[in-house]
Design a protein around this nucleic acid. Sequence first.
DNA 1: TTGAAAGCGCTAACAA
DNA 2: TTGTTAGCGCTTTCAA
Lengths: 329, 329
Amino acid sequence: MSVTIKDVARYCEVSTATVSRVINNDPRISEKTKEKVMKGIKELNYRINGVARSLKTNRTRTIGFICPEIPNDFFMSIAKGVEDELKKYGYSVIICNSNENTEEEKERIKLLCEKCVDGIIIIPATDEGRHFKYLKDANMPVVLVDRLVEDFQSDAVLVDNINGSYCAVEYLINKGYNRIGFIGGDVKLTSAKERFEGYTRALNDYCIPLEKDIIKFGDFHIKGGFDLMKEMMQQDNPPPLVFISNYFMHVGAVKYLIENKYKLDKEVLIASFDDMELSSIFGFSVLRVRQPMMEIGSKAAQLLLSRIDGDKTAYPRIVRLKTELITEW
Amino acid sequence: MSVTIKDVARYCEVSTATVSRVINNDPRISEKTKEKVMKGIKELNYRINGVARSLKTNRTRTIGFICPEIPNDFFMSIAKGVEDELKKYGYSVIICNSNENTEEEKERIKLLCEKCVDGIIIIPATDEGRHFKYLKDANMPVVLVDRLVEDFQSDAVLVDNINGSYCAVEYLINKGYNRIGFIGGDVKLTSAKERFEGYTRALNDYCIPLEKDIIKFGDFHIKGGFDLMKEMMQQDNPPPLVFISNYFMHVGAVKYLIENKYKLDKEVLIASFDDMELSSIFGFSVLRVRQPMMEIGSKAAQLLLSRIDGDKTAYPRIVRLKTELITEW
DNA sequence: TTGAAAGCGCTAACAA
DNA sequence: TTGTTAGCGCTTTCAA
């Protein structure tokens, strides 16, 4: 079949250990032997077999990344952050799709464990976390991202959702708005719950009563945003400004407005959580809460790596990253 | 360390071969032994070590996917197609980012080979393909997607770019437009070149002379679209309709129009290659050429799998998928 | 239907 | 500085 370390050893008239030392840059080797072996490697066209190496070293230098959806700029920006950070250390990333489904998530976890990844980063599909016990049993390092789950304590990277939406709403109030609609995601998700909390806290702190009719919940998707914006605007006295708690709902809301010929000027304004590349071109958006997506990813990667390298610091370690207010006002 | 097949064998008082047969669903095994072993597996909490298995079987059931950018709905929709198809067969996907850079692409290829993936799907970073020779030497199955490269023959999945843009432009001509601007990508890329060719052919066939001033090339990115749309609109006699040859340039063009307060009605219209979820909400878009992204991915996966399974059909096998015209006119 | 044993390609402990 | 060798956890051939 293919060329092995043994072939190289024979060809160069050295031992396999010597060849191994050369390919691992072991310093205890003479310049001369090293050159000879390198030459042999080249001439025989030898390639390292990472599988054999992993079997021996108990390390695959591969980690898993499970997220609810693949073509999704939010999740993939985090994935990029993970990848960029990990590749510095020679790691690669198996990206898996849970399809927002706990069962599939469970499947993927099993598969990744079987593949002996060194650790897993998960953006949970739901708030259900019982199946994560499998990871603990397998002694697999994990970092949760964006959301926490029930029944499972784990290292995690989150953003300061409450403060992010608090500040956004506060900013709007200071701009003179006191009827601010709210469109949010399923409050079972950490992020959705906290963002709603930031909204209510700000209103409370400024003595503005909550208006039930202009507060709406759905899922975090485009369709959810579309449907809720429709409800919002079709009622008798729609608010002049709506705070929307993620990017995809924002997109859905804009979709509704465009399809229904709302003007790009001041008929209705949108503030929202998330600031993606396209957010600013949607035209209704006046204020956004930016999450540092790449940083979320790189931070998660760092946490995971430290656990892989044996860091036993008290569990769970939760990192909360700051958000940033973006406005053209 | 962890529980191995040996532990299970000892615990169940059978041989390791028997345990192996059980976990591989080998039929030549009695119901009774099978049950006994299953019980042992459960009680000891045994987990398969895929690395050891891979070393023995020479198969990792993992494939690599290299693309120029990760947070990119076009590439990731293809990736999802790949993933969905492959997971049926127990495969998983390592997603790598070439950053549109030949050097990084080369690095990733090496890494994937070292990890002994069973095959690689690549959306090439550029038209440069010399470094792909490494794959041939390593005997690694490859499928190229979306673009071909120089100096390297390979299985590939592409769409019918020429016909796609031909039909779009033809449709516009039949709607009465005879001044159609063109904004395209770097013609070194297969897709960019072919889409321009479709445009010119259609104009030729309908005896409309090419107008140099309203034909512009840049890169396939948002900024490219923005800059070229600016050039397009700032000249003396801008065309009433522009054909833009990919999604991201389309986004950039819209960005320019919005920022410069173009009205959402008929001041200027856009037709474009690609039909993404957001395309229809941009407001200027009247016609789009839809690529079947998921299908591109699943087809690429199928091609790759067949090569992995030893299919020696004449190389290269090129699959051209059809596009579809989307319009609300 | 089951078991014994070789060996996949590599690393690392130990010896020289 | 280099070599010998055991063995990582599994599959698979051959024999029983």
